[in-house]
């Protein structure tokens, strides 16, 4: 992953607070969170369970709405859109990758990837062409006509990454994408995700495994709904050279 300069901000979360419930039983899942994700950037979010990291992911993708604060996705402020427009923006701009892959079992790998494009209104043949290109980018072009249960976990997750970023989608929200994979396969998947983001996308990664968060450009730590710290942008391998590691 050569460090190209990062692109423009694709996702901007500003002063986002999310309160569940009201009165004395109200719980602040998020409390005044600011976070920017730029094109070409992968940001990891870490925190104990209940820290608010999943809520942050859901709000970033427009699946949940903040109680206050703003979310700007690809230049559009989500709260300024009506339900229909928000759903359209979410569908066309955001892809999801889950721990359990969530491919549709009755569809082949290529059909799983082309489905979102067909929903976008793209004709079947063109959608398939795009799907094959997307599968090629994640290294599983030869598995296009297999069904999910004929694929290993690592292969399924590659298909899910292809699906998340097919067509115009530039933001991938990954919720524990390596959670169901062994260590070496998990690393392969992170390498693929990293490469896709370097090629012109952005990602928000929730994980409880530091080893996989380390594939991100930076990690932010969430505790009790607040971003308490972050690694910032790394100085890069030069700092390691200076300290004696190659």
């Amino acid at each position: 992953m050569s460090r190209r300069p990062l692109g423009p901000v694709l996702l901007s979360v500003r002063g986002v607070t999310r309160v569940h419930g009201t009165g004395t039983t109200a719980v602040r899942a998020l409390d005044g969170v600011d976070l920017d994700v730029r094109l070409g950037e992968l940001v990891a979010v870490m925190g104990a369970s209940g820290s608010g990291k999943s809520t942050l992911l859901n709000i970033a993708g427009g699946l949940d709405t903040p109680t206050s604060g703003t979310v700007v996705l690809a230049g559009d402020e989500l709260s300024g859109l009506d339900v229909k427009a928000r759903a359209r923006l979410r569908r066309r701009s955001v892809g999801y990758v889950f721990q359990d892959f969530n491919l549709i079992p009755a569809l082949t790998a290529a059909e799983n990837v082309s489905l979102p494009r067909e929903l976008d209104g793209v004709r079947v043949r063109a959608a398939r062409r795009e799907a094959l290109a997307a599968l090629d980018e994640v290294g599983v072009a030869d598995l296009a006509d297999r069904f999910p249960d004929e694929l290993s976990g690592g292969q399924q997750q590659r298909v899910a990454i292809a699906r998340a970023l097919v067509g115009p989608r530039r933001l991938v929200l990954a919720d524990e994408p390596t959670g169901a994979l062994d260590s070496a396969t998990g690393e392969d998947v992170m390498r693929v995700l990293r490469a896709r983001i370097d090629a012109g996308a952005a990602g928000l990664l929730v994980t409880h495994e530091p080893r996989f968060a380390a594939w991100a450009d930076r990690t932010v730590f969430v505790r009790d709904g607040v971003v308490v710290d972050g690694t910032g942008y790394a100085a890069g391998p030069e700092s390691l050279l200076a300290s004696g590691v190659r």
Binding site: M46, A214, G236
Partner: peptide, 13 residues
């Protein structure tokens, strides 16, 4: 975590 990110970058290369 910062040190791990640097190490991982070397691996990614």
């Amino acid at each position: 975590m910062r040190a791990m990110t640097d190490l991982t970058r070397l691996k990614a290369d």
